[in-house]
Amino acid sequence: MAQNNTGVHERPPLSNARLAVLVLLGAETMLFSGLIGAFLVFRVGNVTWPPPSHIGIELPRLVTGINTALLLLSGYTMFQAHRAIQGDRAKQLRRWLLITGVLGLLFLGIQGSEWVQLIGKGLTLQSGVYGGIFYVLIGCHALHVLTAVIWLLVVYGLAVAGRFSAEHYVGVDTCTIYWVFVVALWPILYVLVYLL
């Protein structure tokens, strides 16, 4: 906290924790840019996609589309959790956080079952460029969702312990920023990998 000329302590307009999360997300964006860049080289570079060696392996577009809707819904519920703590409604905060966590876990569960089916059809990390870029790109995002869910569970635990109020909610704030990033990134990956 900075001290002004009247001797009163002032909060910085942007908290250090928020700034740290923004810098982290900047680095994460660059990581995903590199992966998307690699995907673009393979996707645009191949006239037939999936490559001839993988013809017959269809990505589950519909189920993933529904899964996308679930993740987008979790973005809305996280936003509601953030609004709840801004209004000092601790009970609603806990409820919205719980719903968000369940939606995140559901997303991961559906994603995992899809992967099991695709591996059964022969699409593996070693099966070629198609499988490699698919699992690295989608897997990297899934890992981020898992991190976000763990973070959310920690925040939920703190909310149950009554550690947040309308004045102090930086934990909810930073978790919301990270969650929104993970949610906003997914439709881009879905369109690129599943629909193009």
Partner: peptide, 25 residues
């Protein structure tokens, strides 16, 4: 050539990203 086109799109995309990130933060 498709592979050159792929590299071209990838380079353009990655070139834009640092500006986007610094702009947003």
């Amino acid at each position: 050539d498709p592979i050159n086109k792929g590299f071209n799109w990838s380079i353009l995309f990655m070139m834009a990203m640092p500006f986007t990130v610094f702009g947003l933060v």
